[in-house]
Simulated scan of single mutants.
Amino acid sequence: MAHSNPTYLLVHGSGHGAWCWRDVLTEMARRGLSARALDLPSHGADATPIAQVSLEAYRDAILADIDAHAGGPVVLVGHSAGGYPISAVAEAAPDKVARLVYVCAYVPCNGVSLADRRRAAPSHPILDVITRTNDGLAFQFIAAKAPDALFHDCPPEVIGFAVARLGPQAIAPQETPLPLTAAYASVPRSYVICDHDRIIPPVFQATMTLDWPATSVHHLPSSHSPFFSMPARLVDCIVATPTKCPAQAAP
């Protein structure tokens, strides 16, 4: 499934939007790489009501974007909760995905929801920095706590830019189990562990990739937001093709 000149499609995580990839897209353009980012349903400029958001809607939005741009295959890059939608795409249409790149992201287990995956971690720092919306359908990052939790190693300009754009995150897609088969397992994958992450414990990121080939796991001395704190180094990791990245064992 090699692709000599791949296109990179960047998928954001909880409460974020395509805006979080601003500096990464600039860096990729500087290198002459083909890359784009999208807003998942109800995020960024997308006006889908929270009540209509599902993991399937996330998956279908990514597939629609791929199909709108010649059908791929693309390298799908998922940040944080974005690990689940990109995995759902690989399960549904492995021929459209050249590689999956998880950036301090949740790696799914067969039949397990993202929320249950998070609950399996040794600690849950995100619970201290979010609050549920009044309708109970979503959660939001607490603005006063977001800078230290998400962006503690980012420039002040970035913190103001990002905190102002954080939005609600629908709970339903994160409580939805994701069945996985050999289709997902056939897609090569790599991971970027962020060693100073205050949202997803770095030790849990390491646990999720424990049995991966060493050449497919990268480390950055970054917060949960390497796209802002060290975009050039993140791009280095995203574009790195593992020297040996065989199809994964079926989950």
Rank of each mutant, 00 (worst) to 15 (best):
V158L: 13
A115R: 08
P173Q: 08
G72M: 02
D195K: 06
V129Q: 00
D128M: 05
D148Q: 09
N110M: 09
I86N: 09
T131H: 06
A170N: 04
D60V: 10
P202A: 06
A185V: 12
A93L: 04
A68M: 11
D65A: 13
T176M: 04
G167W: 03
G78E: 01
T131C: 10
E91D: 10
I171H: 02
A88W: 06
A143N: 00
A120Q: 12
A144I: 08
I66V: 15
G78M: 05
L76H: 08
C154S: 13
A121M: 10
D148L: 04
F161K: 03
G71W: 03
V187G: 00
D135A: 06
Y106T: 15
A68D: 13
H79A: 11
P179F: 10
I171V: 15
G72L: 02
F161N: 04
N110Q: 04
F161P: 03
I62C: 09
C104H: 02
L137D: 05
G160D: 07
R132N: 11
P125L: 03
A183K: 15
L166H: 02
N110C: 11
R165L: 13
S186E: 07
L166F: 09
V101N: 07
I66Q: 03
V129L: 05
H69E: 14
I171S: 07
A183V: 08
V75C: 07
G167H: 04
P201H: 03
A138E: 02
V203D: 14
Q140C: 11
V97F: 01
Q174E: 14
Q205S: 09
P155G: 08
A143H: 00
D65V: 12
K96V: 13
V107Q: 03
A93S: 11
G136Q: 10
R132V: 15
R189T: 09
G71I: 14
